[in-house]
Amino acid sequence: MNGLLDSLRGIGARVIDSIWRMGVATRFFLMILLQSGQSFRRFHLIIREIYSAGVLSLIIILVSGLFVGMVLGLQGYETLQTYGSEEALGVLVALSLVRELGPVVAALLFASRAGSAITAEIGLMKATEQLAAMEMMAVDPVARVVAPRFWGAVISMPILAALFSAMGILGGYLVGVVLIGVDEGAFWSQMQAAVDFREDVLNGVLKSVVFGVAVTAIALFEGYDAPPTAEGVSRATTRTVVTSSLAILALDFILTAFMFRGV
């Protein structure tokens, strides 16, 4: 009886604690937006962050995109062949990449590559009192350190997702057309007939922007909120990857339900 009561109390405390954290996170997010004007006036700070979030994630994104596209080509061909419609391979590869896999897989990779790096970096800056030192020099760390990272990553995310999709379609083309020998004309023309720029491509880009905001906000908050110890930072890094992956998948469901419900 007592044990039950205790565990109930524990659950209650945890719920309250997480709601509390949610509130702090929201305030932090608003603070970033408030301080953003300053970082846009000093754009070279954002450029640096585009480099470390975007350019440094380029290789993993391109290579994964190519492989995902190649697998889609193989699997799609196997399935479509049984219905005698191999020409639809282009449609299958392009639609699944542009609508879903591009934004989602690129965001998941981005969370584990750039998101965790952001958390670790901010957490370490906090643990080694660099943020406190900045504050003592009358420089707001949110404006100088956090906001540029936010915008650098948010700008990088849709670019990475588009590159992932493009690379994937090339991978599908390589396997489908060059290796297996699906008719090249049918591959591209069916794709073009089925993929709509506004409905599919732009909605995919929009998705990746939303994912970019979510991943970066989570990564920055976890870093900023991490206990200033080695263990605290490493836990925060793990939490960033877990939380932002879940956030990506949940947001993807919501966005898909809104975007592609059909007319």
């Binding site: 070279h44 450029i47 640096r48 585009i50 480099y51 975007g54 350019v55 380029l58 392009a94 542009v98 990088s156 849709p158 670019i159 990475l160 588009a162 590159l163 999709s165 493009a166 690379m167 379609i169 591209w188 794709m191 073009q192 007939a193 993929v195 709509d196 720029f197 506004r198 599919d200 491509v201 880009v205």
Partner: peptide, 29 residues
């Protein structure tokens, strides 16, 4: 800083190229 700018430039251009590819070659715009 100059080499860094160059890389970011390449990155952005590649991104625009990818979106154009998706728009014109893949999509029907």
């Amino acid at each position: 800083r100059a080499t860094l700018d160059l890389w970011v430039g390449i990155f952005v251009v590649a991104g625009i190229a990818a979106i154009l590819f998706l728009a014109l070659r893949v999509g029907n715009m």
